[in-house]
Design a protein around this nucleic acid. Structure first.
Lengths: 240, 240
DNA sequence: AAATATTACTTGTACGTACAAGTTGGAATA
DNA sequence: TATTCCAACTTGTACGTACAAGTAATATTT
């Protein structure tokens, strides 16, 4: 029962064990992990190895460490360098309401995607869905999404956890975002985009093309976002 | 001579020593650091401690490790999640020509900066300079920059290493970028911006406001960028 | 000469120990 | 009662050891 792998790379075993418990909601966000010594006893390994595992989780943004207290589980994605929408007044992040305007369905790949697909992706059909994000009831981001059907299968929109696709992947499928590539352009809004965002045709909008890489082999998420930044700018921060 | 600090946090001492050697060009980019065992002998410490120091340099993007070979010094900033300009044809990054259109001079803070200044910064005057970045001879990015005079002093544009302000900070002042916050908006070009970028007034441009945090206490770099993304999109990637 | 094996390096993982430093809550004290 | 102190936790740093695994040049064998 996987004992061979348990012998090698013990720290990975511990790391993945803890990660899974975080993903499924044991070890809830805001709570503390068992102490390092307790993990040592529980798994019969040394603190060196436990600390190596925790270091990885720290790097991946699952926990923060507090000397004298413990390792706290944090909301992942906050420290992820993702582009987020920011309210213009003050520094409060507005709560964003997400509406699925086109539920997931199986289609062919859209040539608008500016990234080169892998061979597996080209051979596969893809799942497409569209969402609009509202702030204070006004549409701000129009979002088209695609992923390879072969890599994941069709997820229905009523499965979405809190309306979030990423949270669904994490909680239900234990898939995490490993990184992303983005391209940003400033463009005049097309008629279609203008209609969706309730702005004038030709108004400047921020067009973001993004490919998210995930922890599942072969699964990339492609996004095509149109942002009305006139009131709410897009924000991005990162730290070492 | 600093022996007290050398006793505590040895790994930081080693880390900073190696970092400095990388910054000033000993330990050149592309080369390998001394082996872990050699560093152990040289500093009279254990490999555990040396590895901890190297781990930090790895996280900070100064080196990569190659099992069986050694720790290789890499060009920092590549792995930094900074927004970069990308050529549209193929995946080749174009070489960007940087022109200083307004050499550094001492002025007051510009209210256009959308970040809240620290008290020290408010009390200080600031250094301003403007640059334009050309790709294939055509202007693509207009860039205004500010930093606190008290924190750094005036750097003349002829000091710029390869025309790069960041490289100058790293090589000459041993200051590194620790992180950044950015705000992105899509806007119509003002007359002034249009003139500088040689585009129509009102054409959609990408406006980026950025604050870079540095390793020097009290020193932030504020940027106000106007990007013509019609031909060359802005690109951003990050990985865990 | 070419293929193979050895050797001497490199980093990777894991063991165990010791003490420093930060946090917290309860016991002892004022 | 209010304060101080301390003991029992937590994570942080550093010591030393051992062997696995990857790399590259050299020596050996075919």
């Amino acid at each position: 029962m996987g004992d061979k792998k348990l012998e090698k790379h013990k720290y990975r075993t511990i790391r993945d064990y803890i990660k899974k418990r975080i993903q499924i909601g044991k070890y809830p966000v805001g709570g503390y992990l068992p102490s390092e010594n307790e993990l040592c006893n529980r798994f019969g390994i040394t603190r060196t190895t436990v600390r190596k595992a925790l270091d990885e989780l720290l790097k991946e943004g699952f926990i923060v460490k507090e000397q004298g207290k413990g390792s706290k589980v944090i909301e992942r994605g906050k420290s992820l360098g993702l582009l987020t929408v920011k309210g213009i007044s003050g520094s409060i992040d507005y709560e964003v309401e997400t509406i699925v305007t086109e539920p997931p369905r199986i289609v062919g790949w859209d040539p608008i995607i500016p990234f080169s697909l892998t061979d597996e992706e080209k051979e596969s059909q893809c799942v497409y869905f569209q969402r609009v994000r509202n702030i204070n009831g006004r549409p701000v981001v129009l979002e088209n999404n695609w992923y390879s059907l072969n890599a994941l299968g069709l997820i229905k929109s009523d499965e979405f956890v809190d309306g979030s696709f990423f949270k669904t992947l994490s909680r239900e499928y234990l898939i995490e975002i490993m990184g992303a590539e983005q391209e940003l352009r400033s463009k005049p809004a097309s008629i279609d985009v203008a209609k969706n965002l309730n702005i004038h045709e030709g108004a400047p909008i921020l067009h973001i093309s993004v490919r998210f890489r995930t922890s599942r082999a072969g699964l990339n998420l492609y996004g095509d976002l149109y942002c009305d930044t006139s009131e709410y700018p897009i924000r991005n921060s990162y730290f070492l």
